[in-house]
Design a protein around this nucleic acid. Structure first.
Length: 424
RNA sequence: GGAGAAUUGGCAGAGUGGUCGAAUGCGGUAGUCUUGAAAACUAUUGUACCGUAAGGUACCGGGGGUUCGAAUCCCUCAUUCUCCGCCA
């Protein structure tokens, strides 16, 4: 959520910047400012009335203390009118405040200046690439066939027990999955992230805190009985750890990492996009979250990008790094880099990581602040990234490393898997 | 799941209808004293919003209510503790 003060002061710049998202928010911002103006007006009136009635209440108290019953009762009568206007002002203040809030929720984050304009993923900028795309022979199989042939993943069993998109990982498949989780967590820890195992289910306030609510309500599984949401990403609990917190400036950078399963309803997805491991309702991911001083967040984003690139290189997958264009940029992000790995048998680039700087967009909702050198509260910059999402890594590993004799495990993972080849 | 008790400022802990944004202690900050430190003493020390400012408003777990007036009374939700039940 954008800060209202920022809209008051920089309406033109915000309007201009949001054009990279192909949005013209000028009218929306004008109406927000109009509501804001009305709200402030009503708030001042309410405060004045409250002041008056506080004053009279105190006087009545004194009159009673002095035993002047009649005068006190006379004063009481005077308050009748005040009470009524106080009540109606209170109502309009809270109505206006929630109108303002609702309107603010509809404005996405202001893109960073580096974000290219554009409509679709076609317009994303490739800023880096690496690794070698393997030449697979004619008999090369997509990962869902390999998973079946080697008994690594059972999709049908998942359908029986739960539903589509909830696969079982079996034997060496399960061990490879666990190896990847441990490898990613160890790497993150070595890079200075504190390891956390968060709850996998969160309350409504947390959903709002990181911005999944209200925009993506339908994308989360909701346990109605207790009004809990299954997390779509570890970002939610890992960032909400810091909701309503005032951190110390000296503590920057604050870095946490966690492995969690992620649950997504993926309403509206279909066809070959959801084939095999490409898109699941439950998948594993290691997430990194960083809190930074506003002056350092740009550099922090770069560091996180090179960190993610580093681990992709270690497991030897061909990748490309994209800077998302305005049209593809998530609602809450000011800037995002996506990493895609090449899954050779599918002949497809698969997104395995998304690293973003949210600047103050999340911290404003979260009330996550720090005290600056003048002891004033300022909003913290929040960043996060996948490091990494497992299923598509698994898909690319299986496809790219298939040989006639089995599937080769990258060397860095062997200490974690305990085997260097997946065999029948 | 049932019964009971509790939830107050960074922490501990008073306060049961009126000069309470809240005693007191600890902690923090600044100063005095000291070669320096400790101790002692003095002062100061919550957050947010409105306002150029003066100042004002709100907040005593969350929400709602009673009242001229609520930390204090009522309802409701959450959390913690104790006992019972169940359980990996």
């Amino acid at each position: 959520m954008l800060e209202i003060s920022r809209i008051r002061e920089h309406k033109a710049e915000i309007t201009e910047a949001l054009k990279t998202r192909n949005l013209n928010v000028e009218d929306q911002l004008s109406s927000i400012l109009a509501i804001d103006e009305k709200w402030r007006q009503a708030k001042s009136e309410l405060d004045a009335v409250a002041q008056e009635s506080n004053k009279i209440a105190k006087e009545i108290g004194q009159l009673f203390a002095q035993g002047k019953q009649e005068e006190a009762n006379a004063a009481k009568a005077k308050t009748q009118e005040l009470k009524e206007s106080e009540k109606s002002l209170k109502e309009s203040v809270s109505t206006l405040a929630s109108e303002l809030q609702t309107a603010l929720y509809e404005i996405p984050n202001v893109p960073n200046k580096l974000v290219p304009s554009g409509n679709t993923d076609e317009d994303n900028q490739e800023i880096d690439k690496g690794g070698t795309i393997p030449e697979l022979g004619d008999g090369a199989k997509p990962h869902w066939e390999l998973a079946n042939d080697y008994g690594l993943i059972d999709f049908e069993l998942g359908v029986k027990v739960t539903g589509a998109g909830f696969p079982f990982y079996l034997g060496q498949g399960a061990r490879l999955q666990r190896a990847l989780i441990n490898f990613f967590l160890d790497e993150a820890r070595d890079a200075g992230y504190k390891e956390v195992i968060p709850p996998f289910v969160v309350n409504e306030a947390s959903g709002y805190g990181t911005g999944q609510l209200p925009d993506k309500e339908g994308q989360m599984y909701h346990a109605q009985e207790d009004d809990f949401y299954l997390i779509p990403t570890a970002e939610v609990p890992l960032t909400n750890m810091f909701r309503d917190v005032i951190v110390k400036e000296d503590d920057f950078p604050i870095q946490v990492t966690g492995y969690t399963p992620c649950f997504r309803r993926e309403a509206g997805s279909y066809g070959k996009d959801v084939r095999g491991l490409n898109r699941l309702h439950q998948f594993d991911k290691v997430e990194i979250v960083r809190l930074e001083h506003p002056s350092k967040s740009a550099q922090a984003l770069d560091e996180m990008v090179s960190y993610v690139q580093g681990i992709i290189e270690k497991i030897g997958l061909p990748f490309r790094t994209l800077r998302l264009c305005g049209g593809d940029l998530g609602f809450t992000a000011a800037m995002t880099y996506d990493f895609e790995v090449y899954s050779a048998a599918q002949d497809k680039w698969l997104e395995v990581s998304s690293v973003s700087n949210f600047e103050t967009f999340q911290s404003n909702r979260l009330k996550l602040r720090f005290k600056d050198e003048n002891k004033k509260s300022q909003l913290v910059h929040t960043l996060n990234g996948s490091a990494l999402a497992l299923p598509r890594i698994m898909a690319a590993l299986l496809e790219n490393n298939q040989t006639e004799n089995g599937i080769k495990i990258p060397e860095v993972l062997v200490p974690y898997t305990g085997f260097n080849m997946i065999t029948k």
